[in-house]
């Protein structure tokens, strides 16, 4: 049972903003609801108004035009991402990350916008979006802005979003070269679990290797120190250095899922494996 609140449906971007401003601090935008309803069910959150954004034009669906990159409507479900051919072939890492969220039922409702707006340090799509240098297009009382994902998260459950501002689209720039991405997630069970540690690694034909971590800091993070080690060298030793640099960067906590020390060691293990797999994958696709 949920405790009472009012549900309103936003008809347009402006409508959404106005409804949110009107609702005040006890209002919240609703997309898939798979996280919001859980917190409301647990009585961690009591809201007065939920503003459903799913019917706003353009907030669901994907667009990919050559040279323009990919634009994903924020209310697109994770399974829409998983099943999208363009995403699977060109942004495979994002498909993998989306696929690792919750259960199939949850992914049919959960939206990519919700996954990042909840700003869980363990949000699975966040490390993927970080390595793709995604930008978040928002609409709010002060009109629209484009926020680099690296600046979007400010802490557990916290983002730079202002009151009344919602995520409309997620934009991923066109990759300049061929790339291969790997998302590794360590959980307790093999499905429907939160990450103990997750690592996204994107190897680009340009020689760049991008790495982001989940569940080991107050926000999902890019590990640029590790990335710069791999700019010039990609041998076994360099990979080990990079993995160790990722571990140095991580600042996990201990909780019921795992201890801090274990998480740190696993950052190193998963980072190393992710780099190796991404480089191998890139090499293999290059051969084709």
């Amino acid at each position: 049972m949920l405790l009472s609140f009012d549900y309103v449906r936003a008809r347009s971007k402006d409508d959404a903003v106005n409804l949110a401003v009107e609702a005040g601090p006890n209002g919240r935008f609703l997309a898939g609801g798979t996280d919001l309803f859980v917190r409301m069910y647990d009585r961690q959150l009591r809201l007065k108004t939920l503003i459903d954004v799913k019917e706003i034009e353009g907030i669901e669906g994907m667009e990919c035009q050559n040279g323009q990159g990919l634009s994903i409507g924020a209310a697109s479900s994770l399974n829409m991402l998983v099943g999208n051919e363009t995403i699977r072939s060109r942004y495979g890492l994002l498909a993998q990350a989306a696929h690792s969220v919750g259960s199939l039922q949850v992914r049919n409702r959960a939206s990519i916008g919700g996954n990042i707006c909840n700003a869980s340090p363990a949000a699975d799509t966040a490390p993927a979006l970080l390595v793709y240098d995604a930008e978040i297009e928002t609409w709010g009382p002060r009109n629209t802005r484009l926020i680099p994902i690296s600046q979007f998260f400010t802490g557990p459950g916290k983002t730079v979003l202002e009151h009344g501002e919602f995520v409309y689209k997620i934009r991923i720039p066109e990759p300049d070269t061929r790339s291969y991405g790997v998302y590794l997630k360590l959980g307790r069970t093999n499905s429907v679990d939160l990450s103990i540690v997750s690592v996204a690694c994107l190897a680009l034909a340009s020689g760049e290797v991008r790495i982001a971590l989940g569940a080991v800091a107050p926000t999902p993070i890019r590990v640029t120190e590790a990335e710069s080690i791999l700019l010039s060298r990609k041998d076994e030793e360099a990979i080990a250095f990079a993995a160790s640099a990722a571990k140095e960067t991580a600042v996990p906590i201990s909780d019921v899922r795992a201890g801090e020390e274990y998480r740190l060691d696993m950052v190193e293990v998963l980072t190393k494996n992710a780099i190796e797999q991404a480089l191998a994958g890139l090499a293999a696709t290059g051969e084709v």
């Binding site: 069970t189 093999n190 019921v256 899922r257």
Partner: peptide, 14 residues
């Protein structure tokens, strides 16, 4: 951990 979120039981994938 009074929930399946943090009291895990085996799933079909395990």
């Amino acid at each position: 951990n009074p929930s399946y979120v943090d009291y895990k039981i085996l799933t079909a994938a395990d």
